[in-house]
Amino acid sequence: MNGHLTEEDLLLLHYGELVDAEAAERHLLACDACSAAREALLGDLAALENDAIPERGDDYGAAVWARVQPGLRPPTRLFGMTPRQFAMPAAMAATIVLAFFVGRVTHVAPPSPTPPPQIVEREVVRERILVVAVGDHLEKSRMVLVELSHAGNGKRKVNIAAEQQWAENLLANNRLYRQTAVRAGENKVASVLDDLERLLVEVASGPSELTAEEVATLRKRIDSGGLLFKVKVLGSQLRGRERAPGHDASPKVIS
């Protein structure tokens, strides 16, 4: 080892992470200055152990369990399904929708004044799938937004772990539907999904436990710009399109 040991060397040596520990130990045996520096460092590190940490009694574990247990409850069931059960059919629907629209975008057909009947039929099927899938997605999102709007009911602390898990599951499909809607030229649908996505991201990545003030802020976010209203109106319009036999292609909604 060349030269003296730095504070960093001594610290890494203490933590057992110095690359050439053997050479450092040999140097310490021969060098009083470095040996004194090590003693001083170890003395300071020992002083750090003298930290005032509040004591917790023997019953602390039971008290923690009482607070933790409600957070372990299975997520709320919506539509009689857990988030995981729900995610499966929704993800499949999203994939099918995407596949259809990718097909529409990439398929280059020769120009023709009147498309053959099978192409018209395929377009109708594609749109119907988007309408059904997005309508279903919006209804589920609406229910989560309603749950979040009523979360806490005046409590000081509110656990939204279940709603958070729902938001997380809805998020992936929301992205897919939004991208699909953009590709399909469904700008108004894409705009509502975009607003919804921002909120879902916020909920999914935020803390599971909120203060009453944080819940109020979240409620304000849901209300601002009438997100809940937009989701509800668009959802019911899409369901209307879904029922109509030769339905109109563009949703006349959401300003």
Partner: peptide, 18 residues
């Protein structure tokens, strides 16, 4: 899981407080 919580709570608290 309750047993795990009860066994580790105090140490986790110490870490969290530090």
């Amino acid at each position: 899981y309750r047993r795990l919580v009860e066994r580790h709570s105090r140490n986790v608290f110490r870490l969290a407080y530090r």
